[in-house]
Amino acid sequence: MTVTVQRPAGAGAPIEADLFRGLLRRHAAAVVVVTAEVEGRLAGFTATSFTSVSLQPPMVSFCLSRAASSWPVIALAEHVAVHVLDESQEQLARTFATSGVDRFAAPTAWRTGPYGVPLLDGAQAVLVSRVVERVAAGDHAIVLAEPIHGEHASDGAPLLYHAGRYRLVR
């Protein structure tokens, strides 16, 4: 079910993109990498839009620009893997945030996991999830997914993103 909200007559215009970006830079967010595979095509990207949506049933979400190079695979994938990154994985986050590179080439260490999704080594937690719905939201899509397999490592500190930089919890 998709709910469309109409802007009431006389409502103000949305804020400018630069102001919006500046405001959101003040929000600290955990860093994840989302991966998928469709017909032999691998895709992965770094995101800070990951969140828990529901406990019953378990459901998570993340957002991705529909102009992103990973979108064609994510748009078709039945399953994705969400990797919660550890504070030691800043370079992995940078790799998956870089356009025009083979994100799965060495030194990226990964293996094929359940449902054929690529699983990155060393993540603090991994949620292999079945995609439930994709909702268009402006120039992005909100992807809702139901975790069906999970793994976690030690309880190390997470990698965070704040004010345009990767940060460590201290």
Rank of each mutant, 00 (worst) to 15 (best):
T4I: 07
Q6V: 05
R7H: 13
A11C: 04
P14N: 06
I15A: 07
E16F: 05
A17D: 14
A17N: 15
A17T: 11
D18N: 05
D18E: 11
F20M: 13
G22M: 00
G22F: 01
R25P: 02
V33E: 05
V33F: 04
V34T: 15
T35Y: 11
A36D: 03
A36I: 01
E37K: 08
V38I: 02
V38N: 05
V38G: 10
E39S: 09
E39F: 05
G40C: 01
L42G: 11
L42K: 07
L42Q: 07
A43M: 02
A43E: 03
A43S: 14
A43I: 00
G44S: 09
F45N: 12
F45M: 12
T46Q: 03
T46W: 00
T48K: 00
T48V: 03
P57Y: 13
P58I: 04
V60G: 15
C63E: 03
L64Y: 01
A68P: 03
A68D: 11
S69T: 07
S70P: 10
S70I: 02
S70W: 01
V73E: 04
V73L: 02
I74P: 03
L76R: 13
L76F: 01
A77T: 06
A77Y: 08
H79Q: 11
V82G: 06
L85M: 07
D86R: 14
D86I: 00
Q89A: 11
Q89P: 05
E90T: 03
L92T: 13
A93G: 09
R94E: 13
T95G: 11
F96E: 09
A97F: 02
T98A: 07
G100E: 05
V101W: 04
V101D: 15
D102H: 11
R103T: 02
F104G: 03
F104N: 05
F104P: 06
F104T: 12
A106Q: 11
A106I: 03
P107F: 01
A109G: 13
R111A: 12
T112R: 15
Y115S: 08
Y115K: 15
V117D: 11
P118G: 12
P118S: 08
L120N: 10
D121K: 07
A123H: 02
A123D: 05
Q124D: 09
V126Q: 15
V126K: 11
V128Q: 04
V128M: 04
S129P: 01
R130S: 10
V132D: 06
E133C: 12
E133S: 06
E133G: 08
A136T: 14
G138N: 01
G138V: 00
I142G: 06
V143P: 04
V143M: 05
V143W: 00
V143I: 14
L144C: 08
E146Y: 09
E146S: 10
E146V: 05
P147L: 13
I148H: 08
H149S: 15
G150W: 08
E151A: 10
A153F: 00
A157E: 13
P158I: 04
Y161A: 01
A163R: 14
G164N: 02
R165D: 12
R165K: 08
L168F: 11
V169I: 12
R170N: 10
R170M: 12
R170Q: 14
